[in-house]
Design a binder for these strands. Structure first.
Lengths: 146, 146
DNA sequence: CAGATTACATAGGGAACCTATGTATTGCGA
DNA sequence: TCGCAATACATAGGTTCCCTATGTAATCTG
């Protein structure tokens, strides 16, 4: 039985491989994952989105611009704070999110179901593990540019 | 209970987030994952490495060059085929792999253990799910440039 | 032995992110 | 209330990762 540490390291390696494989298969802009954040949390500002997605603020600014150009999100000034924005998922964005989920879901689910050794609960466990590891908050750098 | 397809899509989103978070935390060259491949399978050629890692052959060529420059791998001509190479993990590479595993393992394992709801078996299940989904072979593109 | 295949290298470019820094607004203490 | 720190975001510039297209040399095949 491998140690927790070995397993954790493998988790990262496999995660990287999965991301690359799926991106290559489906050719989607990276920013689409922002759509799922907006779907989950409702309208948010740029910085909040960046923190939640664990990327830098400029990266999120660029991602949002892309999404806005495709009309998948709407960017409005925050009425309570003239510095801030409020990013909202549009109806088109919601449809796109459904499409992407279908696409990603198909590619992965197809492979997953080819493995009868794994149950749907196993998949749910895997997702929960990833989610919880992330939500605890992995430190970024010592500068802490959350 | 979410569907398999929804779970699959989430798996990809979380995987991407994990990779970014860990890379940012540890600042490692992407090529280090090749070390774990060599550790697992023994000496391999460039193309075999690329196929196993699900990246393109030029990408793997570059990664191997990086690793060779750091003396983490040795690149020798394949005695059975003058076209091919044999990439071997060096002792330094083995030490580096241990270091990286420790690093990745610490960052992830620390967060993981903060969640008493998950057992070590859960983590093992997550790793197995990722591995098996990958090893079945997600199609890359219709050109099939494996 | 000529043509197809295979293994790898090189060239060129695009996408995703990052740090550093600038600007405008807000909040706060003297 | 005034000046300064903090906050929210934009912009500039650059790095890393990864890909396609293509060239070269070696191997296989009819």
């Amino acid at each position: 039985m491998p140690t927790t540490q070995e397993l954790s390291s493998d988790l990262v390696v496999y995660a990287a491989r999965l991301v690359r494989a799926v991106r290559r298969a489906n050719e989607l802009p990276a920013g689409v994952r922002v759509l799922s954040l907006l779907d989950q949390y409702g309208p948010l500002g740029i910085s909040q989105l960046a923190a939640t997605d664990r990327c830098s603020q400029p990266t999120m600014s660029a991602a949002v611009s892309q999404l806005e150009a495709r009309a998948w999100v709407v960017k409005q000034p925050n009425p309570n704070d003239a510095r801030a924005s409020l990013i909202t998922l549009s109806d088109q964005g919601r449809r796109e999110l459904a499409r992407v989920r279908d696409l990603n879901g198909r590619t992965v689910a197809a492979q997953f179901e080819a493995h009868p050794t794994h149950t749907a609960e196993d998949l749910a466990v895997a997702v929960a593990v990833l989610r919880d590891v992330l939500e605890s908050g992995i430190p970024t750098t010592e500068r802490g540019n959350l």
